[in-house]
Amino acid sequence: MNEGFLLDIENLWVYYDRIAALKEVSLKVKKGEIVALLGANGAGKTTTLMSISRILNIEQGKINYKGTDIINFSPENIVSMGIRQIPERKKIFRYLKVEDNLLMGAYLEKNKIRIKHNLEKVYDLFPPLWERRNKLGDTLSGGEQQMLAIGMSLMSEVELLLLDEPSLGLAPKFVEETFQIIEEVNKKGTSILLVEQNAYMALEIAHRGYVLEAGKVKFEDRASDLLKNPAIKEAYLGG
């Protein structure tokens, strides 16, 4: 076993009904890295994240996290080990207040002082959330919802962040902001697995990248090399 990897996925097979959504996917994340996971809609990107979070049933394969096999873990165990996923569309509780959303992010945290401290930390990072702390999540704009979702994941000690399409539905201005935040979070020591359809932006902040096609890993390379790869350019960046 290679000690250098925080997350080490080998030969993963996942099925929906009888259709294989992931076919022998292998993927690694080193400590401190941002890894981009690219591919068309339906290629299996979200499925990969949901498998790591142990929401989906895995047919075959291994997932090692910090040297521990986590295949048989429950989603709660995964969270308690410091892995957080921010899903693609429904990333906040729309019928909970902003502050209650953040508190849900600290669900497994028992220490009240630390919760309070984290809450202050998140409000410092995202002042708009402080202003709207008593409003329902539903009333936030797309950009604020993204902030809240990231804020929720920072409410506990997170070592590996699984981000699913953070730019989805955001105005370009917010997309840039979001990516800055992602880089900041990464610089503070959190490793990130980033699923993105906005391939340029993702590859610009990522260290390495994988490209999925129809459930299989098609390319795997350093981010800068992927950016130069003409095949990828044609397929995913629009030629």
């Binding site: 979070s53 429950s74 996923q85 899903p87 509780f93 019928y95 209650d100 849900m104 992010g105 669900y107």
Partner: peptide, 23 residues
């Protein structure tokens, strides 16, 4: 209460609640 909040959360979105570590 925390339980009350969690109930609302589970009722709205089980997957997201699960991703928060809620049983």
């Amino acid at each position: 209460s925390k339980l009350g909040r969690s109930m609302k959360a589970v009722s709205e979105d089980k997957v997201l609640a699960n991703l928060m570590g809620i049983n």
